[in-house]
Design a protein around this nucleic acid. Structure first.
Lengths: 298, 298
DNA sequence: GCATGCCATAGACTATAGCTATGACCTCAA
DNA sequence: TTGAGGTCATAGCTATAGTCTATGGCATGC
């Protein structure tokens, strides 16, 4: 389902957010480095596209209408996500020239690092960070080969030659869409989970390994897949638009659980908790920037 | 802090998401109603703007590179927020012609209704919904005057002439940025909260009333404000970039709490829980569409 | 009454994104 | 091996939409 053709430009939303914050079109225009009439026309255009009057204009400035306040909440959410993309991307791009080289697993890179790096970048505007996204095993080998300074992993792999610091926690949870029969059950048992076909990541992914481990440890067979997908967000989309359960990182579905698009199903005796860990080679001293980043997180 | 000037267009991100989903530029182009070369050029442009190679193109289609997969996760987050805006907006715009007229308070309208209405719109594509955003008291009077069919409120107001259904729960929590001294405390007591200047909504808002009520009920004075702002998202931004605490709806800061941009502070003996309720006039029969919407939520 | 903000309008310019038509390449099957 | 049916890329044209500068109107406040 593509976005409506007349969906406004992100730069227009960004400009509108600045107008709300600064209280005037002209000031917002200056902050964005454009002329005042351009800002006026962009906002007018935005109102036309949205079909809503956003601002009360007066000789003393512009303040949002009641509708404008509500819209402002929605646009803020979009802009936050956009800034996450920017922060993550800047780290990805710094690859070649970067001073602090980070290697992280997918879940951490997608859901946590953009925020952490965004804050870090504001506090250290002159420094660059390079981000390499790999699976957890590969993160460790990059660290050993000296190709990265600091790693973030989410699996309970043994790391004898590494120092580590716990930077958060994650949990695998079983989720279904609200229409699924499980959504109204108080809990299901592990046998039922093991016998029900699930949407899953491909074999070898950390999430899937953890689930298989937990099930076989409890004497059950390996889980059955109804569909295998190559990324966590693909799994989430599939569950949202289909009617099969999955077992997935709670971080990846936090907002869907909050607004009821997905429902968490308790599985008896199944607790898959994972520490999110920062790791680095024990033999090398930790670079100063890495120390600063870790201090931010503790 | 405005967005980077070269930030890609949302339509390009949307197109990219479709390419990842469908596995081919041409199919994605068709889905978006543009010609294949246009899609090719837009994606090429997107890669140039982001500075990252997103797709491996081959004669059998296009699949995302490892970096592309990560970027896809970030763009999905942006697009989800954009769809929320679309859903909420469509309801706002339907005002004049709408069949089902909804009146909701700010928090529910901003954080929950877009998702609910998005799902509802997919299931009832021929029907329209109008959304009016007011404070809770005004929602009730709109219902009584027959200007709305269904209301959503978050305050414990008495509603003798209304029927109601609980559709969720919210909780007011005290939050601070991670640098604030409270962030490392296990808990603070209510006296300390009452004496510390807070960032707050303006007098008369539901959130502020609830906090004042809870404090005076416990024998404390009214809370002191260091800054008063007109919307919940303005309060959130102020706390994120300043160094003062606030007491705010957990829904409004769910993602900031999840990724550590804000820290929840436990306040001893302070529990401000609020039922989120759908309400409608007892004397009139509930319109069929309203029944359908409520069924979705239960 | 005049200066100083604010926002809106007008007209010229430019850049960009879209289209159609075509070409190059790969894969699969006859 | 050759042709059919996919894939994506390139070229050249056009139209649109966004930008700027210059100006004007309108409140507010000294």
């Amino acid at each position: 389902m593509p976005l409506s053709a007349s969906f406004p430009d992100l730069t227009a939303l960004d400009l509108y957010a600045s107008v709300v914050e600064l209280g005037s079109l002209g000031r917002a225009a200056k902050m964005h480095g454009i002329a005042q009439p351009s800002a006026s026309s962009r906002i007018r255009n935005l109102e036309r596209q949205l079909g809503v009057k956003l601002l009360d204009r007066s000789a003393r400035g512009s303040t949002p209408t009641p509708e404008g306040i509500v819209v402002s909440g929605w646009t803020d959410a979009i802009l936050r996500a956009a800034h996450d993309l920017e922060a993550g991307l800047e780290a990805l791009k710094a690859e070649q020239s970067g001073r602090l080289r980070i290697a992280a697993s997918y879940t951490i890179a997608e859901y946590l690092l953009p925020t952490w790096l965004g804050r870090f970048a504001r506090e250290h505007p002159r420094d660059t960070v390079a981000l390499d996204v790999e699976n957890s095993t590969h993160v460790l080998s990059e660290l050993e080969r000296g190709e990265a300074d600091l790693g973030f992993i989410e699996t309970p792999l043994k790391t004898p030659s590494m120092k580590e610091q716990i930077v958060g926690h994650d949990q695998l949870v079983a989720v279904v869409p609200p229409e699924h029969p499980w959504a109204t059950r108080t809990s299901i048992d592990m046998t039922e989970l093991a016998e029900t076909p699930l949407v899953m990541r491909e074999k070898g992914s950390g999430t899937r390994e953890a689930l298989e481990q937990a099930l076989t440890d409890a004497g059950h067979g390996a889980p059955v897949s109804v569909l295998e997908l190559g990324s966590t967000s693909a799994v989430r989309s599939a569950v949202l638009s289909g009617n099969s359960p999955t077992v997935i990182s709670r971080l990846a579905v936090a907002s869907e659980l909050a607004d009821g698009q997905l429902v968490e199903v308790e599985v008896e005796n199944l607790k898959i908790e994972r520490d999110l860990r920062a790791v680095w080679p024990a033999k090398k001293p930790l670079p100063k920037l890495a120390v600063a980043l870790l201090a931010d997180l503790s």
